[in-house]
């Protein structure tokens, strides 16, 4: 058996697919001040998992995945509702909703049926990148047979369509997204509905996150939704470039992280998340150095500003 084909190829492919699936919605989330959506989702899925168990009596990934998806969508809807009703910034609304939903999950865990069963998220939902072995291709040329790809590990078969659908959606709605992201009032005038776009983005994020939770675990999803987009944010003001760079950086972070993990013999997800943080730190330093080199033309958003800086409308 070829260890690269069995271990590294599926892990790398899953990592890349997860990177793309998360970086696409993540790039927009970061622009909208919703970077913590991944963390919120990782907590909000708990009641969905427990209800799925209580309803079916099964510890199997099918119903639990559906339960997690449903809970994620409900939570995302509640966040949007609370934001509007209480006029809150996104992270405050997320904190409010995810702590309440997680608490609900903890209460459900103490019911008689769930009490004696190991239903914690690490056991029931969150997967590990490394555990996706692919034993079918014995030699490289096997990969040329289309049928062999149907035997690929399930996380890959799930994440690739999710990434493709998200990419297609983004391309098709790019114009609307751009306007809705930077000028919701104008968008409404133009007949677009920013709320609809908000909802579509949230649903897409939830889908990508839950699919990726099951494949690579929560920590990597939170990192992939945030770090690549943060690096891209430091590089460009153009929306299209920002999204493209997010996807590129996500892939680079995944590849560098995986190889570092292999060399250090540590967890792939944890190492990739740490590499993501490192990438943001490096980007901040490089940007500071470059701005020092040519200070006057720095433009807006270079000072110690704590608010989300809108992209320059003219440049988008």
């Amino acid at each position: 058996m070829n260890p690269f084909l069995a271990i590294d190829l599926p892990a790398l492919l899953i990592a890349i697919a997860a990177s793309i699936a998360c970086a696409l919605p993540g790039s927009l989330l970061v622009l909208r001040g919703q970077a913590l959506m991944g963390d919120a989702l990782s907590h909000m899925v708990l009641p969905g998992i427990v209800v799925a168990f209580l309803a079916t009596g099964k510890i199997s990934s099918g119903p639990m995945l559906l339960g997690a998806l449903a809970a994620g969508l409900i939570g995302a809807g509640l966040i949007a509702l609370v934001r509007r009703a209480a006029k809150l910034e996104p992270s405050a609304a997320m904190g409010l909703v995810f702590t309440i939903m997680f608490a609900l999950g903890v209460v459900l865990l103490e019911t008689e049926a769930a009490r004696k069963v190991d239903l914690d998220l690490n056991h029931a939902l969150y997967g590990h990148l490394e555990a996706a072995l692919w034993l079918e291709p014995a030699i490289w040329s096997d990969l040329l047979t289309p049928a062999i790809w149907l035997t690929a590990p399930r996380p890959l078969l799930m994440l690739v369509p999710v990434a493709l659908v998200l990419g297609l959606l983004l391309v098709l709605t790019f114009k609307e997204l751009r306007i809705a992201s930077f000028d919701p009032d104008y968008a409404t005038l133009q007949g677009f509905r920013p709320r609809l776009i908000d909802f579509a983005l949230t649903a897409a994020t939830t889908l990508a996150a839950v699919a990726a939770f099951e494949a690579v675990g929560s920590i990597l999803v939170i990192a992939l939704l945030t770090c690549p987009a943060a690096v891209a944010r430091l590089c460009t003001d153009r929306l299209a470039t920002h999204i493209t760079l997010s996807v590129v950086f996500a892939t680079v972070i995944a590849l560098v992280g995986y190889n570092s993990a292999a060399a250090l013999e540590t967890s792939g997800s944890g190492t990739m998340a740490a590499v993501g943080g490192l990438a943001v730190g490096l980007a901040v330093i490089v940007r500071r150095l470059r701005l020092h080199a040519r200070p006057p033309a720095a433009g807006p958003g270079t000072g110690p500003d704590s608010a989300v800086q809108p992209l320059r409308p003219g440049s988008v």
Partner: peptide, 26 residues
């Protein structure tokens, strides 16, 4: 030192910190 928003900075530190922790555990 950057133009990243508060929520993005918080999310970056959260994921990198927790990632380092998971690395350490492994």
């Amino acid at each position: 030192h950057s133009r990243l928003s508060n929520s993005t900075s918080i999310a970056v530190v959260l994921s990198a910190g927790f990632g380092l922790g998971v690395m350490g555990l492994s």
